[in-house]
Amino acid sequence: MNTLTFIFYFFMLTAAASATGILLSRNVFKAALMLLVCLLSIAALYVLSFAEFVAITQILVYAGGVLVVIIFGIMLTSKLSGKPLQVGHTNIFAAVLSGILLFALLANFITDDVFAVPQHAVETQGALQTIGTNFMTAYSLPFEIAGILLLAALIGAAAITSFMKSKKV
């Protein structure tokens, strides 16, 4: 087993373990931190899968953006309520059972040969440049729509917060 393979499995394990941690944790804040660990290990896996740009975006936008927003939300709600961050669980049995069943089903399908990697997988060369060009050419329409989506989300979030101002509880 070479070093690369070891690193690969290490991050896989970390991701899986932190995901399990989210499921088990009753503390929102700890769960958020575990998600951070999970996201970062996934980013590492992206790097190992020749997707450097996705990895960077994952770290910057996801870990840096989304998670910060979520943690901010946690802080805000706990500050407002003054209650501890403990979270209750419901229908654990059904959820875990259906989770296991779904996983078994998916794993069964994934074992199929169709998903086996070809013997000589070519490494993508100059991926960064291609991604850049793609945004401007083949993916220009989705790129624009993503812009509109961000705008709509912004308007939406702004509208919601302005409700809160208009109707103080």
Binding site: N2, L4, T5, F8, Y9, M12, A15, A16, A19, T20, I22, L23, C38, L45, L48, S49, H89, T90, N91, I92, A94, A95, V96, S98, G99, I100, L102, F103, L106, A107, I110, T111, F115, A116, V117, A121
Partner: peptide, 25 residues
């Protein structure tokens, strides 16, 4: 040598199922 692609898919499936369970629980 790179680890099998399928291992990544297993991990993804695991994350997906865990996520779904989290939403339910």
């Amino acid at each position: 040598m790179m680890p099998s692609l399928q291992h990544l898919l297993y991990l993804a499936a695991f994350l997906f199922c865990t996520g779904l369970a989290v939403v339910m629980v």
